[in-house]
Simulated assay, not measured.
Amino acid sequence: IGPGLPGGMMGSLMADLESNLESINKYKAKRNLPFMTQDQLLIKLFNEVAYVWPRVGYPPLVTPFSQYVKNLAMMNVIAMEKGKERWGMIADDIWDMLLGKAGKLPGTLAPELVEKAEREGRKFFTGNPQDNYPDALDKYRKMMKENKWDLGEDDEELFEYAMHPAQYEAYKSGKAKEDFLADVEKRKAELNKSPLDDAKPKTLTVQVDGQAYRVTVAYGDIDLPADATAKVEAPVGEGQDVIAPLEGKFFLTKNAQETPVKVGDKVKKGDLLCYIEAMKTYNAIRADFDGTITAICATPGDTVSEDDVLMKIG
């Protein structure tokens, strides 16, 4: 009751708990800290939603703004549990809400968020929000005809594609179904596995001084295969790693208007590199330094974990 969570927002929050709890506990495991339980995370989230909502100007708790409030609360809790500052990760869509691009907020934005916006060079918007969203249906209609995709009854397929292009393309290509079935099989395997399964050797790929190696990790006495230290043949670009700050799906673009970066592109600090879609929002990943992209280490649509290498910049 205190945080004022509506039903849809509550359901989405519960769905997000599993992966984010895993991310937090991975961090704690590396530092020998006590694990967090799902109940503890849930209570922290309730308290953080109650903290966040007034400070982002009391946006109406309906889609998508309720999701933005919940996502901010989730990202704040994750950051603070990992020793980082609150408000460190704010997706572009959420910034649009905070800056007034989706309409005037009922309340006042907290001074620390106003200061953060100004520090990052973000501009507040007081005009007509519709001006920020020009009609793109003709463009998507043309793309659907080129792909020989049906527009649907009352153009409902067209509207779906225009609203969620990356997800719609994953659905039409069959990748969404493949990912779903793979997740089902993974969960079945987890339910049916024997306690002895965890003791079986596992094969990992690690990098040492820029060179990739395949390593077998085993528990107890076991004969390692002869090729346990065989080099992985996949070429690896040289340079500094661009690390995923959170778990989610990797995308180079979030709509058809954007041009994806590619190997060989020169980038400057602050340039947009890619996105991680998590909790229904696209989180922009930007370059922390100047250089040239030497490798893109994930495929659009892939699920990446926190601290995975997304790209290399040399």
Rank of each mutant, 00 (worst) to 15 (best):
G8W: 11
M9G: 03
M10S: 11
G11Q: 10
S12E: 13
D16M: 05
L17A: 10
L17R: 08
E18A: 12
N25A: 07
K30I: 12
N32C: 13
N32W: 01
Q38A: 13
F46C: 06
V49S: 02
V52A: 02
W53G: 02
V56M: 06
V62N: 14
T63F: 15
S66H: 11
V69F: 12
M74N: 12
M75F: 11
M75I: 08
V77G: 05
M80F: 12
G83P: 14
G83Y: 15
I90S: 04
W95D: 01
D96K: 15
G100M: 04
K101P: 03
A102P: 02
G103S: 04
K104W: 07
P106I: 12
L109D: 06
P111R: 00
A117M: 02
A117R: 09
R119Q: 06
G121Q: 01
G121L: 07
R122Y: 01
T126F: 15
N128H: 08
P129V: 11
Q130A: 13
Q130S: 15
K139I: 14
M144L: 06
K145G: 14
L151I: 06
F159M: 08
P165W: 00
Q167M: 11
Y171T: 09
K175P: 10
E178Q: 15
L181I: 13
A182E: 05
E185I: 13
K193Q: 03
D198M: 06
K200I: 13
L204G: 14
L204N: 13
D209L: 11
G210T: 11
T216H: 13
I222N: 06
L224H: 09
K231A: 05
V232Y: 07
V236M: 08
V242Q: 04
F251E: 04
L252Q: 00
A256L: 11
E258V: 06
V261W: 01
V267Y: 03
K269G: 08
K269W: 03
D271T: 14
Y275I: 02
M279W: 09
A284R: 01
F289L: 08
T292I: 05
I293E: 07
C297M: 07
A298V: 03
G301I: 00
D302G: 10
V304H: 11
D308F: 12
L310H: 06
G314N: 12
